[in-house]
Design a protein around this nucleic acid. Structure first.
Lengths: 176, 176
DNA sequence: GAGGTGCTAGTCAAGTTTGACTAGGAGGGC
DNA sequence: GCCCTCCTAGTCAAACTTGACTAGCACCTC
């Protein structure tokens, strides 16, 4: 899951820069833990990878009045591009966690863009639900998983609930 | 995610033994990929860890008529105990993937036990939904995540859909 | 002023996951 | 026979995640 990467990019993007502990704190303050688990280690790891990949630039370690020195990171242009790319992908995803993170950061994109992405997401989601329903009523093939029908129902139900939620968000954005 | 561990244990438990490729194939045949992604590497890794931990015993490599030699694994008593433990945990989980895997293998437990686990799951899930709804209507605190209300709605909607699904499974099992 | 507590800031080893890669064997086409 | 393809069976390095751990600093208490 490179959701962590998106989350870190998104938080750094808010102010253009941040140090690791600030990101970590923000992840804690927001109840990010409700929608996706992000451990401190993952955050620092992501920061390092992003810095290595030129998405963030590590500034010189600065002194802190309240504790050890800390490293501040600044978002680069490439970093912003990756943020947008990942954010758009998240807003088109069927994965509930990705979708949640996408919506959390959606204000970083133009409204029209978000609307288009969500329209697309909904269309594909509905097609997917239809496909799963079709599978559901098919005569069971050989060698299927036990309780395949139930499992399909689980996915259909959740996809459906998610789609209704997306619909709500989309409606609020107003007509395209 | 040690869901892979549960899946591998569950598949090996079906016949008491299996070799890696057979597990991999079964994961492919079943549309396990709909409910959870399991890569080949993870399967072989899990098999090795399970063998190291005494949950499986690796039998001598046997020749195969259709390809390279293969290693067959047999479930041990300790392994079966871990299987049951993980299965029960999965059936009490709120995580949709875990729950799906749990239901896929639920026939390995006595019906009554499954009924009790699902009853418990539903009770906790309803409490959780109530709690989230309460959070939802709370006056927003300082420093909340952007779109916190929406994110809560997403979780409430999905948890709710999942709970209705569990209810269906539970009902079918008959009265406790 | 020594020690305890709690927040700040981050490191690290162990475990897990991913996706690409290797390599054996069977069968078909030419 | 030789090559190509596809299935069988698994390995491996790189990346990612986890949870426990270290260490600086301030404040309080005794």
């Amino acid at each position: 899951m490179s959701l962590v990467r998106l989350i870190v990019l998104g938080i750094v993007a808010l102010d253009g820069e941040a140090h690791g502990y600030a990101v970590r704190r923000k992840v804690g303050e927001w109840r990010v833990d409700s929608w996706t688990r992000v451990q401190p280690g993952s955050i620092y790891h992501a920061l390092k990878q992003l810095a290595r990949d030129g998405r963030l630039r590590a500034l010189a370690a600065e002194e802190s009045a309240e504790g050890p020195d800390r490293v501040r990171y600044r978002l680069t242009e490439v970093g912003r591009a990756e943020f947008v790319e990942r954010l758009e992908a998240a807003l088109g995803s069927f994965d509930i966690e990705a979708l949640g993170v996408g919506v959390a950061f959606m204000d970083a994109l133009p409204k029209k863009r978000v609307a288009a992405l969500l329209d697309d997401q909904m269309q594909r989601a509905r097609a997917n639900v239809a496909h799963l329903r079709a599978l559901r009523t098919e005569t069971p093939e050989e060698g299927q998983a036990p309780h395949t029908g139930d499992l399909l129902d689980l996915w259909i139900g959740n996809l459906d609930a998610t789609t209704r939620w997306v619909e709500g968000i989309r409606t609020r954005l107003g007509p395209a």
